[in-house]
C-alpha cells in the first residue's frame, strides 16, 4: 500500500516536471492553446474517471456540467458583473447541488439505463442553452470577459497555460488522495460487487452520490476556466458528442487510472491537430486508431503500457 502511494506521488512529481518543461518545446502560442485545452479536458476526465473507473458508473452527460460551469461564469461575469472567481465558485456550487439533487434517482439506474439517463440530462441542458437566447446568446454562443484574480488580469496563452496546468496538478493531487481515502476504498469495493459492498456495511448509495457530485464539480470548474481562457463559449460544449468525447478520453487513457485520464485527454485533444495531415482521411484514421488501441489495449493506454513495462523489468522482491 505504502509503495503504491509513493508510486503515485512519484507520478504527480513526474507530471509536474513534464508540465514545467513542456513550454521549452513550444515554438509559439498555438502549442500553448492545445496544451490549455488538454489540461482543461483532463480535469473533466479525472473527475469522470472517479465515476467510471472507480465507482463503475457511466455518464454520457458530463458535457452538460462542463457547459453549465462555463455558462455560469460567462453569464454572471458578463451580464451581472460578478468577479470571475466568485462566479466560478457559484457555478461549481450550483452544479454540485444540481448533481446532488438528481444523483439519487439517476444512480438507482444501472449500466446502459444510467447511460441513457445521464445522456438525456446532458441533452436537456444543451437544448435549454440553445433556446434561452436572451440569457445565453443561443446557438451562436456568448463572449466571456477576461478573468481577474485579485488585481491580475489573466490573459495571453502563457498565463493561461500556467493557470490551467496548476489547476490540472491540483485536480490530479485531489484525485490521488480521494482514491487513497476511505471513499476510494469503498468505491473500489462497490465496483467489484455492489451487493457484497453493501453486505460489508458500506453505504453504497451515499458514496455513489458523493463521487457523482465530485465529478460534476470537476467538470463545472474546468468549464468555467475554459470559458475564460477562450473568451467565448457556445452550446456545442454541452452537446452529446462532447460527452462521448470525454468518456472516450477516459477509456482510451485507461479506466481507474488518474494518469490514464490525463493521457487520454492529451491524445484526443492533440490528435485532431496531427491528423490534419491526412486531410479528407482524418476521420477514417481517427476511427481506426480508436479501434486499434481498444483491441490491443483493452484496459486503456496507461495501464497497458505500465503492465508491459512491469513485465519487461526483472521481478522485484515484494517489500
Amino acid at each position: 500500500m505504502l509503495r503504491l502511494a509513493s508510486a503515485r506521488t512519484g507520478g504527480l512529481v513526474a507530471l509536474a516536471a513534464i508540465v514545467a518543461a513542456l513550454p521549452l518545446f513550444f515554438p509559439n502560442n498555438f502549442y500553448y492553446d492545445v496544451a490549455i485545452k488538454t489540461a482543461l479536458n483532463a480535469i473533466v476526465c479525472i473527475g469522470l474517471n472517479l465515476l467510471i473507473g472507480y465507482a463503475g458508473q457511466i455518464s454520457l452527460g458530463h458535457a452538460g456540467f462542463f457547459a453549465l460551469g462555463g455558462y455560469a461564469s460567462a453569464i454572471l461575469t458578463a451580464r451581472y458583473g460578478w468577479p470571475g472567481l466568485l462566479a466560478m465558485l457559484a457555478g461549481a456550487v450550483g452544479v454540485g447541488l444540481l448533481a446532488f439533487a438528481i444523483a439519487r434517482p439517476v444512480l438507482r439506474l444501472r449500466g446502459h439505463y444510467l447511460a441513457m439517463a445521464t445522456l438525456g440530462l446532458g441533452i436537456i441542458v444543451a437544448i435549454i442553452i440553445n433556446r434561452e437566447i436572451a440569457i445565453t446568446g443561443g446557438p451562436d454562443g456568448m463572449t466571456v470577459p477576461r478573468l481577474w484574480v485579485g488585481g491580475w488580469r489573466v490573459s495571453g496563452a502563457v498565463a493561461w497555460y500556467w493557470v490551467a496546468a496548476g489547476a490540472l496538478l491540483l485536480a490530479v493531487w485531489l484525485s490521488l488522495n480521494l482514491i487513497d481515502s476511505t471513499l476510494g476504498r469503498a468505491l473500489r469495493a462497490l465496483h467489484g460487487s455492489e451487493i457484497a459492498a453493501q453486505t460489508a456495511g458500506i453505504d453504497t448509495t451515499r458514496y455513489k452520490v458523493l463521487v457523482f457530485v465530485i465529478s460534476a464539480v470537476f467538470a463545472s470548474l474546468a468549464g468555467s476556466l475554459f470559458a475564460h481562457a477562450e473568451g467565448y463559449v457556445t452550446p456545442i460544449e454541452a452537446g452529446f458528442l462532447r460527452s462521448i468525447e470525454f468518456v472516450t478520453m477516459v477509456v482510451l487513457g485507461g479506466m481507474a487510472s488518474t494518469f490514464g485520464a490525463v493521457a487520454g485527454a492529451a491524445i484526443l485533444t492533440a490528435l485532431p491537430q496531427l491528423l490534419t495531415v491526412f486531410q479528407d482521411y482524418k476521420h477514417l484514421v481517427l476511427g481506426a486508431i480508436l479501434i486499434g488501441v481498444m483491441i490491443f489495449m483493452p484496459n486503456g493506454l496507461v495501464p497497458s503500457v505500465a503492465l508491459s513495462l512491469r513485465r519487461l523489468r526483472p521481478p522485484v522482491p515484494a517489500s
Binding site: 515554438p27 509559439n28 502560442n29 498555438f30 492553446d33 492545445v34 454562443g141 457556445t234 456545442i236 491537430q273
Partner: peptide, 14 residues
Amino acid sequence: AKQATTFAKRLIED
C-alpha cells in the same frame, strides 16, 4: 466553435 478557435490560433501563430 472549439475546433474553429484552435485552428484559427494555429493559422495565426503557427
